[in-house]
Design a protein around this nucleic acid. Sequence first.
DNA 1: TATTGTTATACTCTATAACTATA
DNA 2: TATAGTTATAGAGTATAACAATA
Lengths: 153, 153
Amino acid sequence: MSYSKDMPDLDLTHGDDAAAVNSLRSAVMRLSRRLKHQRVDESLSPTEMSVLGTLSRCGSATPGELARKEHVQPPSMTRIVALLEGKGLVRLEPHPEDRRQKVVTQTEQAEAMLEESRRKRNAFLAGLVEGLDEDEWASLRAAAPVLEKLAHL
Amino acid sequence: MSYSKDMPDLDLTHGDDAAAVNSLRSAVMRLSRRLKHQRVDESLSPTEMSVLGTLSRCGSATPGELARKEHVQPPSMTRIVALLEGKGLVRLEPHPEDRRQKVVTQTEQAEAMLEESRRKRNAFLAGLVEGLDEDEWASLRAAAPVLEKLAHL
DNA sequence: TATTGTTATACTCTATAACTATA
DNA sequence: TATAGTTATAGAGTATAACAATA
């Protein structure tokens, strides 16, 4: 039996697992559309916000690394980085070892903006979460890091 | 103290809740981009698939109801419904009580397509889930219905 | 007068293909 | 020859505004 205790015993013929997978996909797609509309800065797209969040968490990165992390193609990241630079939210520096690459770093202005916008985002999600009970919110909190992992697995 | 036991004690000044909210938003956006690429039918967009899923779960609906459920504007739903009708996946009938409205119903062909595609979707998500351990998958299963609720709250 | 749905139009975001510079 | 990033272009999906038909 090719079964490891570290792997979930995901049985695709099992109705409950299949239902969970369907439910998850549908919910993520629909929730993402709602979040798209809750822009903290009206002029920043969700992906642009996500790039700033990634830089805030992971520090500096090259455009190529950012493209892979955000699951967009390199030309799209070129455009995003140029836009963020134009707004003074990131700084572009030459790569110390490879002159083809660049290093993207967020500015203090970006960090301040993220902090400022956190309240607005939380207000929106808190409004939704108020419709949940304690157990549901606990489920969500437990799942958040797993969804993060899934997003860049 | 304005506290109800049915409401989560969401404290926006509390770092853990704020972090969970941020994590959730970021993960949902990035995961949705990955799912976008995993189309069961290459010719159907995620929203179009989601409409079929909604019809499958909820039965018939008017274009206006579908627009509200999917969080798109009425003109967008007009376009989606027309496209699905052109592919023979939904049927449009006059509303029995209000001649302004229409009733959208999925066809047998749509149900067969959903069933067929379920295996492909599951294969992709199962691939991701294989990188999780038992507890993580359990968290996700518990959170799926909550995310569904959040998506149309 | 309000509501449901449609048509016409424009915008945002992303992708692909072709190119430049460096490794 | 392969890789990082850019430029130019096209396409998908959605929104807003203006309109038609019905309540």
